Simulated scan of single mutants.
Amino acid sequence: MVNFPKIPNSTTVTEFLLTRFSDVWELRVLHALLFLLMYLATLTGNLLIVTVTTFDWKLHTPMYFFLRNLSVLDMCYISVTVPKACAIFLLDSRVISMAGCAAQVFLVFLFAYTELLLLTIMALDRYVAICQPLHYTMIMKHRVCVQMTLASVLSGLAYSVLHTGSTFYLSFCQSNMVHQFFCDSPSLLKLSCSDTFSNEILILASAVLVGGGCFAFITMSYICIFSTVLKLPTRGERGKAFSTCVPHILVVTVFLSSGAAVYVKPASNSPTVQDMITSVFYSIIPPFLNPIIYSLRNKQIKEALRRIMTRNLDSGKKDSLKPFPF
């Protein structure tokens, strides 16, 4: 008689439950309203940047090419988490399917990784423009800019496949409560009944390698930029150079520091509420801040927007003067 091994009394997880910031209805409505307002402001601001930098030929430069791609990326990035978060805040159901959870993990890795690389490329663009202005057009050719952007997206796809595959290769049993308002890898590792040590090492190593490498490159670029800017003869030139660099540093600092706070430390030593608040700063705040920093404080974008509006108004007046065809 053959003795079959006993199957442990455990339930395989087929769906997950996301976590709200609060179960009080009034606070849930407030959180949903705040998220929705930030989401709409992000979409509006980034769509404005894409429109202006596309239709104004004076902004067809490498700097605004990368800014346009960053805006498209930000609209996609914030759309991964915020709509679902608003739904779980307002509705009774907090369920997300296994496929939906895997899609969120994949897209968050993809867009976060690609955004970091784009911010690094933008630092390179500023370095060449300020430190090597005579060689700028030769170095930052349109073909080179397109190649760097495509390389960022393709490497981001590989990076996302690696982390999503390693996360969902694990077994999930019994608990299905994700202590986060969206699915991310550190929160899912806590729910696995498999050994997650190799996953934690993979996340830590890749975060240090990619995040640390990009941060080191950006830091070195800005050290060179600031040393060059301080040598400029007039205060106006120095102020203009600083005004284009400081906002970029602010976005990179918020993005990297908040992401490191969640992904670098071990998954078992993470206060739930703290992680949820910190995750807002790397998943929602950067896409929200980018259009504010790069459009409201950018004179060229304001002038381009004014030109486009004037052109549309003039064409509208000409159309209104045409005789009505009977």
Rank of each mutant, 00 (worst) to 15 (best):
L17I: 11
L321E: 10
L67V: 01
L33E: 01
S175P: 02
S10W: 08
C76K: 13
L59R: 11
L70A: 11
V178Q: 00
T310Q: 13
L70K: 04
V262M: 13
G213V: 11
I49V: 00
I7R: 11
Q274R: 15
S97Y: 15
G236I: 10
Y113D: 02
S187F: 05
W25I: 11
L157Y: 12
A102D: 00
S206V: 04
V50A: 00
A207S: 14
L73W: 03
L202N: 14
S93F: 12
K265Q: 13
F281A: 08
V80H: 03
S198I: 09
V128Y: 04
F168L: 06
C214V: 03
A205I: 08
F324K: 09
T61K: 13
K302T: 10
S227I: 14
D74Y: 13
H31E: 14
L27V: 05
T167M: 03
F16T: 11
F226V: 04
S22T: 15
L73K: 03
L30R: 11
K190G: 07
V264I: 15
D125E: 13
C76M: 14
V229R: 10
M220C: 14
R311H: 12
I285P: 01
D74T: 06
K190F: 04
I88T: 10
H163F: 00
I249S: 03
K6P: 04
S270K: 12
C145W: 07
L124I: 06
A216T: 06
I308N: 01
S206N: 02
L47Y: 11
D184Y: 13
T149F: 14
W25V: 15
Q300L: 12
T54K: 11
M309F: 12
V264Q: 00
I223A: 04
P266W: 11
T54Q: 13
T120R: 12
V161Y: 05
I121K: 05
L110P: 03
D314C: 01
A267S: 12
F181I: 09
I293P: 00
L36W: 11
L40G: 02
R28W: 03
I277W: 11
F181K: 01
K265T: 09
I249T: 01
G165S: 08
L162S: 07
G100Q: 02
L119K: 05
I49N: 04
P233N: 10
I121V: 14
F324H: 09
L191V: 12
F16C: 13
M75P: 01
T228D: 02
